[in-house]
Deep mutational scan, measured.
Amino acid sequence: GPMASDKRPRTAFTAEQLQRLKAEFQTNRYLTEQRRQSLAQELGLNESQIKIWFQNKRAK
């Protein structure tokens, strides 16, 4: 629909990254900035991508 703007492409996470994020989520529903930074480095992701993933996951 018209609401779907092309400005922010959805990140396609790899299965491996998703597995890691899910495991982290089961341990911590809320990430500290430090955890998020190390996860971002570990997974080669953007911190904001991880932050948003957690927000979306909590919203469900």
Score class of each variant (00 low, 15 high):
L39F: 03
K51C: 08
K60Y: 06
E33P: 15
F54Q: 01
N56R: 15
G1M: 07
R20S: 04
R36C: 06
Q55N: 07
S5L: 03
W53K: 00
K7F: 13
N56E: 06
Q49A: 15
A12K: 15
A12Y: 15
T11M: 08
A40R: 02
K22I: 10
D6R: 02
K60E: 05
P2M: 12
I50H: 00
L21K: 00
Q37T: 13
A40K: 02
A4Q: 14
R36N: 08
E47S: 08
W53R: 00
K57T: 08
R8C: 14
A23E: 12
T11Q: 14
L18K: 11
A15S: 11
I52R: 15
D6K: 04
I52Q: 12
Q34D: 11
Q34Y: 09
T11D: 15
T11L: 13
K7L: 07
D6P: 06
S48Q: 14
A4W: 08
S48A: 11
A4T: 11
E42F: 03
E42W: 03
E33G: 12
M3Y: 03
R35M: 10
F13Y: 08
K51Q: 11
R29M: 08
S48F: 13
A12V: 12
E24H: 02
W53H: 01
Q41S: 12
Q49W: 07
Q34G: 13
R36M: 11
M3A: 06
T27M: 14
Q26A: 13
E33C: 11
G1C: 14
R58W: 07
A59G: 07
T11W: 15
T27L: 13
G1R: 09
R29K: 10
E42K: 03
R10G: 15
Q17V: 06
I52A: 13
L21I: 03
A40S: 12
F25V: 03
G1K: 07
N28A: 05
R35Q: 13
N46T: 14
L18G: 03
P9A: 04
R58K: 05
Q26S: 11
A15E: 09
P9G: 06
A23F: 06
Q34K: 09
L43H: 01
T14Q: 03
F54W: 12
D6W: 01
N56A: 08
T27R: 13
R35G: 05
F13K: 02
L39H: 00
K51W: 12
F54P: 00
E33N: 11
P2N: 14
R35W: 04
E47V: 11
S48E: 12
R8L: 11
T14H: 03
G44S: 08
D6C: 11
E42T: 04
T14I: 02
M3P: 14
K7S: 10
Q17G: 02
E16D: 10
I52H: 14
R58V: 07
G1I: 12
P9N: 04
S5Q: 13
G44R: 07
R20C: 05
E16A: 12
R58F: 07
K7H: 12
P9R: 03
M3I: 14
L31H: 02
P2G: 12
R29W: 08
N56H: 15
E42R: 03
E47R: 04
I50W: 01
M3H: 13
R29F: 05
Q49Y: 12
T14C: 03
S5M: 04
F54E: 02
I50E: 00
A4I: 12
I50V: 07
N56S: 07
Q34V: 14
A40P: 00
P2S: 12
P2V: 10
I50F: 01
F13H: 03
Q49H: 05
R58E: 05
Q17D: 04
R35I: 05
L31N: 02
Q26F: 09
Q34A: 11
G1V: 07
N28G: 05
L45E: 01
T27D: 07
A40I: 02
E42P: 00
L18R: 15
K60T: 09
K22V: 07
R36W: 04
A4P: 14
K51S: 07
R36T: 11
T32Q: 05
S38C: 09
L31T: 03
A15T: 09
T14D: 04
S5R: 01
F25N: 00
Q37N: 08
P9Q: 04
A12F: 13
P2Y: 05
T11A: 11
L21D: 00
R20P: 00
E33Q: 11
L43W: 03
F54N: 01
I50Q: 00
Q37G: 09
L31P: 14
G44K: 13
E16Q: 13
I50C: 01
R35A: 08
T11S: 14
S48K: 14
K7V: 08
E47D: 07
R29G: 04
E16F: 14
R58P: 02
L39A: 00
E24W: 02
R36V: 10
L39E: 00
L31I: 10
S38Q: 15
E24I: 05
Q17Y: 01
M3G: 11
E47W: 03
Y30W: 10
L18T: 08
Q17C: 04
Q19M: 15
A23K: 13
T32W: 04
Q37W: 08
T32G: 07
A40T: 02
T27H: 13
E33S: 13
K22C: 10
F25G: 01
E42I: 07
Q49E: 08
E16W: 12
E24G: 01
Q34W: 08
K57Y: 13
A15I: 11
A15Y: 12
K22W: 06
L39I: 10
N28E: 06
F54A: 01
Q34M: 10
A15R: 12
Q37P: 02
K7A: 07
R10T: 15
P9L: 04
L45T: 05
Q26M: 10
P2Q: 13
A12C: 13
N46V: 09
P2R: 01
Q41A: 10
L43P: 00
E16R: 13
N46S: 13
I50K: 01
Q17P: 00
S38I: 13
Q41L: 14
F54L: 02
T32R: 04
A23H: 09
G1F: 14
F54C: 01
Q19W: 05
Q19A: 14
R10W: 15
F54R: 00
K57Q: 13
I50T: 01
L21G: 00
M3E: 11
K57S: 08
T27F: 13
L39G: 00
L45M: 07
K22R: 07
I52M: 10
G44M: 07
G44D: 09
